Amino acid sequence: MARTTLDTAALAHDLRLAVMRFSRRLRNQRVDTSVTLTHLAALSTLKRHGAMSPGELAGHERVQPPSMTRVVVALEGKGLVTRTPHPTDRRQVIIDLTPAAEALLTEEARAREAWLSGKLHALPPEDRATLREAARIMDELAGG
Rank of each mutant, 00 (worst) to 15 (best):
R24T: 13
L97G: 05
L80M: 09
N28S: 12
L131T: 09
L105G: 09
L116C: 04
G118P: 04
L46Q: 09
I95T: 13
R27H: 13
R21P: 00
R27F: 04
A114T: 13
G79F: 03
H60C: 06
M52A: 09
L80G: 00
L6C: 00
A114K: 07
A41E: 13
A111R: 13
A129N: 04
P87L: 07
T45D: 11
A122H: 04
H39M: 12
R128Q: 10
A103R: 09
D96R: 11
W115F: 15
G59E: 11
L37W: 05
Q64D: 10
R112A: 07
A142W: 05
L17I: 01
L104I: 04
H39G: 06
M1V: 10
Q92R: 14
G79A: 08
R70A: 14
L123Q: 15
L6W: 04
A41H: 11
T82L: 13
R83C: 05
R3A: 11
G144S: 04
E108L: 02
A122L: 15
R91M: 10
V35Y: 04
W115G: 13
T106L: 14
A74D: 14
L15Q: 02
T88F: 13
A42T: 06
T82N: 08
A101N: 08
A103F: 02
L123A: 14
P125G: 05
P99G: 03
T33I: 09
S53T: 15
P85C: 06
A12Y: 01
L80A: 02
R16N: 00
L141S: 02
A100L: 10
V35K: 05
I95L: 08
M68L: 08
R91Y: 10
Q92A: 14
L46W: 08
L40I: 08
R136W: 05
A58N: 08
R24W: 08
G59N: 07
A111Q: 12
R24N: 11
H86I: 05
D96V: 02
P66R: 09
K119S: 09
A135E: 00
E140T: 14
L6Y: 04
T45R: 13
E107D: 15
P99N: 11
R27P: 00
Q64H: 14
Q29F: 01
R91H: 11
R110C: 00
L43R: 08
Q92S: 09
G77T: 04
T82F: 06
E107W: 02
A142M: 13
L104G: 08
R16T: 07
P87I: 06
V63T: 09
A122R: 14
N28Q: 12
V72E: 04
A135W: 02
A42G: 12
E107S: 15
E56I: 06
D14C: 00
R70Q: 11
A142K: 06
S34D: 12
G144C: 03
A111N: 03
L104R: 05
R136T: 10
D32N: 12
D32M: 05
L15V: 15
T98Y: 07
G55S: 07
G79S: 03
A109W: 01
H49P: 01
V72R: 03
A134F: 12
A18N: 00
S44Q: 14
L116E: 01
I137S: 07
I137G: 00
K47E: 14
F22Y: 04
G55Y: 06
T130Q: 11
E76N: 10
